[in-house]
């Protein structure tokens, strides 16, 4: 287990961490810990939120949020790069809500908007939770696994008449 992993477990005994390889540490927690964990990590030097992503694990009924954090202020005492943290939080697929992390990282804003649009996740406290990219309405958020792209394209675009010569 890595140093940062140990620090996390020391501070939050309920959170389990797992070293994937020398460059990555996985942190599994639930949504109640999100803000306190992010704040703790940010104070501990993990000052860069690289990405917020989501994986639709449809069979488990779970939307798994993934926060990727890294340390841009290098820790000189540790040789080699500090590991990237992959924080995973499962949300219920039926009612995916979680608190917005914009208060900790400002750049969470577009990521949360994107996930709201693509996966239908409600980030409470987000100031402008409206679609980021798309202009049409979808019955199922398009990046969810049960959204059938081919069927959508066929239904939506086959009806557009071809360009006349």
């Amino acid at each position: 287990m890595s140093k940062v992993g140990e620090e996390i477990t020391a501070h939050f005994p309920e959170i389990n961490t797992h070293r994937i390889d020398e460059k990555r540490v996985e942190v599994n927690t639930d949504k109640g810990y999100l803000l306190s964990l992010l704040n703790f990590l940010k104070d501990g030097g993990y000052d860069h939120l690289g990405l917020i992503s989501c994986v639709d694990r449809m069979e488990d009924g779970v939307l798994q949020l993934v926060y990727v954090l890294s340390r841009y202020a290098q820790d000189e005492s540790v040789p080699g790069p500090d590991p990237t943290l992959v924080v995973k939080i499962p949300l219920s697929r039926e009612e995916p809500t979680i608190v917005s992390s914009m208060g900790v990282f400002i750049n969470a804003e577009p990521y949360e908007r994107e996930l709201y649009e693509m996966f239908g996740i409600d980030f409470t406290g987000h100031p402008r939770l409206d679609p980021l990219f798309l202009e049409r309405d979808y019955d199922i958020p398009p990046l969810r696994k049960d959204f059938d792209t081919r069927r959508y394209v066929t239904e939506e675009f086959e009806t557009i008449p071809p360009v006349e010569d």
Binding site: G50, E109, P110
Partner: peptide
């Protein structure tokens, strides 16, 4: 791939 998500540099640069 089950899921792929690009973290592109212009994303925070352009949006935030």
């Amino acid at each position: 791939p089950y899921r792929a998500h690009f973290r592109t540099p212009s994303y925070p640069h352009g949006l935030t």
